[in-house]
Structures are given as C-alpha cells and as structure tokens.
Design a protein around this nucleic acid. Sequence first.
DNA 1: CCATGTCAAGAGCACTGCTCTCGGTTGTGA
DNA 2: TCACAACCGAGAGCAGTGCTCTTGACATGG
Lengths: 228, 228
Amino acid sequence: MKASQTARERARAELTSEITRTARRHLATEGAAGLSLRAVARDLGMASSAVYRYFPSKDELLTTLIIDSYNALGRAVEEADAARDTSDFPGRWRASCHAVRDWALAHPHEYALLFGSPVPDYRAPRDTVGPASRSTAVLARIVVEAHRAGALRAAERPHPDAGPLKLSPTVRELFCDSPEEVVARALSAWTSLYGWIGFEVFGQLDGVLEGRESAFSRHVAYLADVLF
Amino acid sequence: MKASQTARERARAELTSEITRTARRHLATEGAAGLSLRAVARDLGMASSAVYRYFPSKDELLTTLIIDSYNALGRAVEEADAARDTSDFPGRWRASCHAVRDWALAHPHEYALLFGSPVPDYRAPRDTVGPASRSTAVLARIVVEAHRAGALRAAERPHPDAGPLKLSPTVRELFCDSPEEVVARALSAWTSLYGWIGFEVFGQLDGVLEGRESAFSRHVAYLADVLF
DNA sequence: CCATGTCAAGAGCACTGCTCTCGGTTGTGA
DNA sequence: TCACAACCGAGAGCAGTGCTCTTGACATGG
C-alpha cells in the first residue's frame, strides 16, 4: 500500500520538486515577472500543459517559491543570531541585520518577490504568514530578551507626542509583555532596516554612495542607538 | 511656417498627452505590470500600432509616466515644506515626511513604479534623475539649513565605529559642506522613511498594526531624534 | 498640381497563462 | 486476473501581450 502508491507518488514528488527547482532558477535569473510556466516546461522537456497537473496555476507555483524564499531568509537570520553570544544583544542585532542584507543582495529577485511591489492579482494565502514572520521573529526576540535582561534603554525614554499603538494580537504576542515604547522603537528599526536594504537592492543607492557595507553598518548602529 | 506645422503638430501633441493621460489612468488602477499599450489604444479607439507613432516602445511611455510621477511627488513634498516656517526645521521635516507618505498612499502604483521592484528589462534614462532627486532634495535642504543654523545635534555626536563615507559628487553637492556625520544620519533617516512607507504601501504592515497615521508620526519623530 | 512626408490600420510573429480533449499508463478492488 | 478508475503527458486551441511591416489615405509644401 505504501510502496505501490509510492511508485506513482514518488515520480510525482520528484517532478514537483524538479519544477520548483527550475522555476527557482528562472526566478533568480529573470525575476518574478519573467517567470514563465512555458519556459519552465520547456527546460524540463515537457508540454506546458503537463505542468498544470502539478501546479493548478502560476500563482500556486509562486506561492511555494515565496514560502521557500521566506524560509531561506528566516534560516539565514536565525543562524546569524544563534552564532552570537546570547547576552550580546547589540551584537545579535547587528549580525541579524547583516544577515538580512547579505541574503537580500545575494538573492535580489527573491527579495523583490517578498518585499517589493506586490505581484498583480496575487493574493498571499495563509500558508505564507508563518515563514514570513520567521526572520522578523528573530529581531523581535532579540529586543524582547534584551528588554527582559534590562539591556534596553528604549523603555526609559518614552516619546512625548505618542499616541497608543493598536497592534494585532500576533504582534502583541511576539513582543510578549514589552511596553509600548519598546514595540514602537522596534517597529521603527525594523522598517528602517528594510528601507535601506530595499533601496540598495532596487538600485536607489546606485549613483549615491559607494562602500555600502560600512555605510550600512553605520545605519544599523543608528538603529541600535534608538533601541539599546 | 509656424501655424502650418502647428496644425499637424498640435494634433500630435494633443494625442500624445491623451495617450499619457489614459496610460496614467491605467497605471493608477491596474499597476505598471498591467499597463497594456493595446488596452490604452482600445480606450482611445485607435489601432494598437498607431500608438507606436507616438511612443517608440512601452518603455518610452513608462519613462514619461515615471518622470511625471517623480515630479508629482516632488511638488507635493516641496509644497509641504514651503508651507512651514523656514526656521522650524523639525516641523519642516515632519511635514515633508508626511507629504511623501500621503502621496504614496494616494498613488500606490505610482509609488511602486518609483520605489518598488524594478521593471524587468527597463533601464531608467538620464531624464529621470532630475525629477527623481526632487523630493529627496527637499529633505536634504532641510538638514543642510538646520545644520547651518546650528539647529542640528547630529554633528555633535559622531559615531565611534564609523568608516568614511564615499559619496558621489552629486550627493556631496546636495549636502554642500555638511560634515560626514550629518550626511550619514540624513541618509539613514532617508532610507528609514521610505522603509516604513514601502512596507505600508506594499501591505507588509497589513496584519500588523492599525492606526498607522499616528504610528508613522512616531516613526518620523524617532528619525528626527537621530538628526535634530 | 504633384511629390513628399506623415499617419492610422491591419496582418502577422513570437510569446504568455490557461483549458480541454485525446490517448496511454498505472494502480486497485472485485 | 481482469476491468475500471484514476492519473498523466501531449497537443490543439483561446485570448491576451509587445512589436514590426506593409498598405493605403491624407495633408503639406515646393
């Protein structure tokens, strides 16, 4: 019952992963907009219609690519964070930020797929939210643990003209019992991180400055100053 | 010689602007990827091939749309800045930041065209760099003038582990004789501003928090703290 | 008044996502 | 063992895209 079904299903799983693999290769070279089901099928030596046996639509294929990319980014950040001493919160912060940037620069098209202009007529299904929050969860954890260890100055300097934050339950859970000021500063730093990286990946910094590595380090240090 | 040619040329100019107008409408509703020359021609009741008399390629049409969008954003920011008292540097900063955000939220597809994932196989011609820097120039001017007026604390707190910035001549000119620390902090704030706005426009903040207006104000205030 | 240059339109090419049908294979329950 | 059902690949086809080339109509200027 197992091996018998496996004959077919193994071939199916094989071909499915083969499709995603070549699709990922196309995505990395041509970009999301240039990803063509027909081209993928052509590379695999099969009819374009056959691909639809494995992915009911291009969006479905895109979804698995998105999930894979989120996981790849998440893993990279998790590893960078884990490589540092647990109590070295600024070091963990810097390492995680650089991990995001390194991954983004190494996989610009995947980064564009995750954080760039949304693909038209594509609605991200529920399956993506888990992997999507993986890298962000690392950054949030660093902030929360730093706050618990008393290594965070953020909470001590609440901003005067600050209205209350209306956070979603998910985010509130991510930050546990951290005070609002901490969450607000973390949100600010989070978006700022991706602002720089996005500009760098999308070429907005192209004619602006060289030596981006050290300039980015400075940026991350400023963000850390807001937090730690 | 003038009026005679004008008969033809006026018709040509008329149709050209008519094309860009409907193209801009399509862009605003469908997005850059959904912009179709054939659809524009259909809306105008003419053959698709006729459009190519006015724009040699889709990229060319896209370029004028990009320039228009950059100018619209630039004008919005310039007006917001001009509406404030010249010496109220934090106020000008806040107003300009909010102007960028307001324009972006009002024109999400145009924003995506300017700051989102680059359009595949599209290379921005030189004509775009002028309008592109317009909105950024406003922010830079605020920082420079604040520094000259001695209203900038940024220069007083240079960052310890900071390598030298290798700026392009254009940017160096934009910031005149401002010290490196000021430029670095301005760069950081600039990217952070667009990081938040990009996340908001592209839906990254969708399930994260409500009351974005006040949360954004807080973000801008943090950025101001880094600068002023 | 006629040659010249401009223009819109149509056909056509190569490409896309996607659907449907037609055989062929494979797996399974009777 | 055999038949039936499920699955699978290939091909044709539809509607759409950007873009090119040719054709015929029109206005303009010498």
